[in-house]
Amino acid sequence: MLNIGVLVSGGGTNLQALIDAQKSGIIHSGRIVTVVSNKPGVYALTRAENAGIDAHVITKKECGSSDAFDAALCAYLQKMQVDVVVLAGFLAILGDSFLLVYKDRILNVHPSLIPSFCGDGFYGLKVHRAALDYGVKVTGATVHFVNEITDGGKIILQKAVDVLEEDTPETLQKRVMEEAEWKILPEAVELVCSGKVHV
């Protein structure tokens, strides 16, 4: 069984989907051993504590630089013997040194069908606003491996979600989370932890 570390920056809805999937047995080839946030006081940390999972905070401010942040994060995850890293709403760019240590073992969920509406600057509601502005009829979510290109790693799973005429960025975000992100992220984590998918 592999050890999973989840990196978060906010409310932790994707983290909750992972915790629920672990409880229900969808994820059975790995277990979440730690949740690390780059922002103190976020609700994701409470979700981790409520589930009896180690919750930890490491900020760039306290580290003093991006390189020092990467080093501190990497050292902590290694101390916790983390095998697979999952970015679940983690709003920080990881540097090359971190990516090298966890090469092909970092997963991210993105709220669009990559290669649409992804890359630098596309996160949160900005993704859904761009999809609506463009007029697409189908959007969705993608789980992919993380490399040095933002949203550029190999795709593991995708799931499509219809765009409705009356959608706002907020309603579309909620539906993409419920119908796609919360389903394919746990599935992808299990595929990687079980060795069925790798780069």
Score class of each variant (00 low, 15 high):
residue 81 Q to T: 15
residue 36 V to M: 04
residue 121 G to W: 14
residue 122 F to K: 03
residue 102 Y to P: 01
residue 70 D to W: 00
residue 115 P to E: 10
residue 48 A to M: 05
residue 59 T to C: 04
residue 62 E to N: 12
residue 97 S to G: 10
residue 105 R to F: 02
residue 46 T to E: 15
residue 88 A to E: 06
residue 56 H to V: 12
residue 51 A to C: 06
residue 70 D to M: 00
residue 101 V to E: 06
residue 54 D to A: 13
residue 40 P to E: 13
residue 44 A to P: 01
residue 115 P to C: 12
residue 111 P to W: 09
residue 52 G to Q: 04
residue 102 Y to W: 05
residue 122 F to W: 08
residue 45 L to Q: 05
residue 37 S to G: 10
residue 124 G to K: 12
residue 59 T to F: 01
residue 120 D to L: 15
residue 58 I to G: 00
residue 43 Y to D: 06
residue 46 T to Y: 06
residue 104 D to S: 12
residue 55 A to K: 11
residue 122 F to M: 15
residue 74 C to Y: 02
residue 41 G to W: 09
residue 66 S to N: 03
residue 55 A to H: 01
residue 110 H to G: 11
residue 116 S to N: 14
residue 47 R to F: 07
residue 102 Y to L: 05
residue 66 S to Y: 07
residue 107 L to Q: 06
residue 76 Y to W: 02
residue 53 I to G: 06
residue 70 D to E: 02
residue 88 A to C: 07
residue 36 V to G: 08
residue 53 I to A: 10
residue 114 I to W: 09
residue 41 G to Q: 10
residue 49 E to P: 01
residue 79 K to L: 08
residue 86 V to M: 06
residue 56 H to F: 14
residue 86 V to I: 15
residue 120 D to T: 15
residue 79 K to M: 12
residue 122 F to V: 07
residue 106 I to M: 05
residue 40 P to M: 08
residue 98 F to N: 01
residue 123 Y to R: 09
residue 64 G to H: 02
residue 83 D to K: 12
residue 116 S to C: 09
residue 43 Y to M: 08
residue 108 N to A: 10
residue 70 D to S: 00
residue 119 G to W: 11
residue 75 A to D: 09
residue 78 Q to W: 05
residue 107 L to K: 03
residue 56 H to E: 13
residue 99 L to I: 06
residue 75 A to Y: 02
residue 76 Y to V: 01
residue 117 F to G: 09
residue 48 A to H: 03
residue 92 A to G: 00
residue 88 A to D: 05
residue 109 V to C: 14
residue 64 G to S: 05
residue 48 A to W: 02
residue 124 G to Y: 09
residue 118 C to T: 12
residue 123 Y to W: 14
residue 112 S to N: 12
residue 81 Q to I: 05
residue 71 A to H: 10
residue 100 L to A: 15
residue 84 V to F: 08
residue 124 G to S: 11
residue 57 V to T: 12
residue 66 S to T: 06
residue 87 L to G: 03
residue 50 N to E: 14
residue 102 Y to E: 06
residue 46 T to C: 04
residue 115 P to W: 13
residue 123 Y to L: 08
residue 39 K to A: 07
residue 55 A to G: 08
residue 47 R to L: 06
residue 55 A to D: 03
residue 68 A to F: 00
residue 84 V to E: 04
residue 58 I to C: 08
residue 62 E to S: 14
residue 49 E to G: 05
residue 119 G to P: 14
residue 47 R to C: 07
residue 87 L to M: 14
residue 122 F to A: 07
residue 36 V to I: 15
residue 37 S to H: 10
residue 121 G to K: 13
residue 40 P to W: 07
residue 66 S to C: 00
residue 71 A to Q: 03
residue 64 G to Y: 03
residue 104 D to L: 01
residue 49 E to H: 07
residue 75 A to G: 06
residue 72 A to L: 01
residue 103 K to S: 13
residue 69 F to L: 04
residue 77 L to W: 02
residue 40 P to S: 10
residue 89 G to N: 07
residue 53 I to M: 11
residue 116 S to T: 14
residue 54 D to F: 07
residue 41 G to F: 09
residue 109 V to S: 13
residue 78 Q to G: 14
residue 95 G to Y: 01
residue 38 N to S: 09
residue 50 N to K: 14
residue 100 L to V: 09
residue 70 D to A: 00
residue 114 I to F: 08
residue 74 C to R: 05
residue 123 Y to F: 15
residue 106 I to P: 05
residue 89 G to I: 12
residue 119 G to C: 13
residue 112 S to R: 10
residue 80 M to D: 11
residue 69 F to R: 03
